[in-house]
Design a protein around this nucleic acid. Structure first.
Lengths: 340, 340
DNA sequence: TATACCACCGAAAACGTTTTCGTGTTGAAA
DNA sequence: TTTCAACACGAAAACGTTTTCGGTGGTATA
């Protein structure tokens, strides 16, 4: 169990100075061919690798970024991580993953803990609780310290920073329009409570589509789900009490559960009722019937977010200008078996 | 955009030495009540937080661990991360996530990159390619440097280190036995190629169950799937050419695909053919019919792995003894709709 | 022969901490 | 008055790098 070898040890062993060793390894022209080779050979023999922490301290950058997400077990977030990771790795950056568990406090703790030199920047999607509280002081804090932040998916307009989103409103509009074009009149909406930014936007898109097509909006057809553990009966009531012909769900779980409940109630999908989901994840693909859904490319979002962050990081301090972009990732409707 | 304040700046501002500031903030008894309060007030005002990198360098530990997994979009691995993350966070550790993408090279690069001070230990599951090559030099390398490694799920016996696994053989045996007990005689197996350690073990468990029950093993009923992108026709052939009554699949994707193909061929699940999967993920739960499966608790595995790693990390250097454990996580059969 | 220049190398500072040890001041005890 | 401990604080080393600056010693030029 030999410890990692350091410059100092090499220097001592070869009876030269630390500077000489360092320069030799970086192929400095200050060093004679002779010593350079000697040092390099020795370093190779002992498998010398510079200590990252020391480098971080010296350079005041850690070549590490952090992504904070509400839940990793949501397939969408996993794909975003995947995208972030690839871009980061390609550029020599590491990725620390933090889970807020939808908790404001964990989000704050994670950010404070890492904003002290450990990382160079954040990529994040807000927790539900944070969105509900509308308290973003922890984010402004790190931004004020000069640390770049990129928000994606669940964002807020209260913070000035780079953002990567999809046009939730438009995507929901299109999905609803798709159903309307198929001739459906009684289209239900399964959505989240309003403080979840993306849920709200999708709800608005749905309503807009109805209005645009002069369909009357029926409050009874809109179900706002708060507790994601036990909402089957909400859906059951919806289906039993309304003579609906289509359902638009703002996420996969809602969609697949709707199908399940419908089946149980003797309605078949898509012949009796059509269903559209949101987020093209594993469930939509493998459910049977497979689910028509708004595809939200998580990998692309992650890649874009990472690129934007790295761009900010690579800019020299002096020609840094405060200018923030919001990138909109295209969505598309993937037609599968759950709609007719 | 003010930079983070350092001890030095506080010292200068208050006209005391750096040592005094440091001691004051750590409530050292060496410092008078007076100065201590003065310093603490000032530090609070300027929101002083010690620089993690500097601490890491000084203490020669980063309070960060790394988990290397083949793919994050596999739900099982995502749950493991979740487990690791929670235990790590509770103990003041951060988690760096690396994806090997099933590639040997990426695994090696990631490990070499991080083994230079950035992290204190590894938790990992081998990539397919690594398992195929049986080249583990990068792992022995870091272990020899005194860095603890915990392997989980896809492990190898060629390396001495802590491990967390399930009893794949036994779990597969039990699943098969479950089908046999139901009276099925022609039970097919959908498995991976043999170099994937867990796939091989599960295959062995299946075979053992057949033997134990004096059922003859039919090579035609065993399908080894290499390419996970396009294997539907393999399954189709299996079903068409054999009069089988049950299928045991070594993962979710295989199971749900089998159900899909069976349905397409006019067989209904479970009345015509029963299906059991492996890994209790989202798909099994939300598929319809929902899938009877061997539940492999990823969260628990992650938690256990993290605990084992942290235990090693918290041990003082001197009373470190090389002793490795292999923890076996219990599995259970979750009975759902895909078996009758 | 004196000067200039070059090739080669080392000392030291810096990044931000913690901690050991040394030192000056004070008050009380001898 | 002397001595000694207690108290309060500072200097400096250490963690492992990189880089600037300042030397050497030797060789070529005037």
């Amino acid at each position: 169990m030999r410890r990692k070898v350091t410059l100092k040890q090499i220097a001592k062993e070869l009876d030269v100075s630390i500077s000489t060793v360092s320069k030799s390894l970086r192929d400095s022209s200050e060093i004679s061919e002779d010593t350079r080779q000697k040092v390099q050979a020795f370093a190779k023999l002992y498998n010398y690798k510079p200590n990252n922490i020391a480098l971080s301290l010296k350079n005041r950058k850690s070549k590490t970024i952090c992504i904070i997400i509400p839940e990793i077990i949501h397939h969408f977030f996993a794909t975003v991580i995947s995208g972030v990771e690839h871009v980061a790795n390609e550029n020599g950056y590491n990725v620390i993953v933090c889970l807020s568990d939808e908790s404001f406090d964990k989000e704050v703790i994670n950010m404070e803990m890492l904003a002290n030199g450990s990382i160079d920047g954040f990529i994040m999607s807000l927790s539900k609780e944070t969105q509900q509280k509308r308290d973003f002081h922890h984010i402004t804090e790190v931004i004020n310290q000069g640390m770049p932040v990129v928000m994606f998916d669940r964002i807020t307009n209260d913070i000035l920073c780079d953002k990567v989103i999809i046009d939730d409103n438009l995507a929901a509009f299109n999905a609803t329009q798709f159903l309307i074009d198929k001739g459906f009149k009684k289209i239900a909406l399964l959505t989240t409570v309003d403080y979840v930014s993306v849920g709200k936007l999708r709800t608005e898109g749905y309503i807009k589509a109805l209005k645009t097509n002069d369909l009357k909006m029926d409050e009874n057809l809109i179900v706002k789900i708060e507790d994601t553990d036990n909402f089957e009966n909400q859906i059951e009531n919806l289906i039993l009490n309304n003579d609906l012909d289509a359902i638009f769900a703002v996420n996969e779980i809602f969609a697949v559960t709707a199908i399940k409940v419908a089946k149980r109630l003797g309605k078949s999908v898509p012949s009796d009722v059509s269903v559209i989901g949101f987020t093209d994840g594993i469930i939509s693909k493998y459910s049977s019937p497979s689910i028509t859904t708004v595809s939200q490319n998580g990998i692309k979002m992650g890649e874009k977010a990472a690129k934007m962050l790295l761009e900010k990081l690579e800019i020299e301090e002096e020609d840094y200008e405060e200018q923030y972009k919001t990138e909109v990732i295209e969505t598309e409707l993937v037609e599968r078996e759950s709609t007719k």
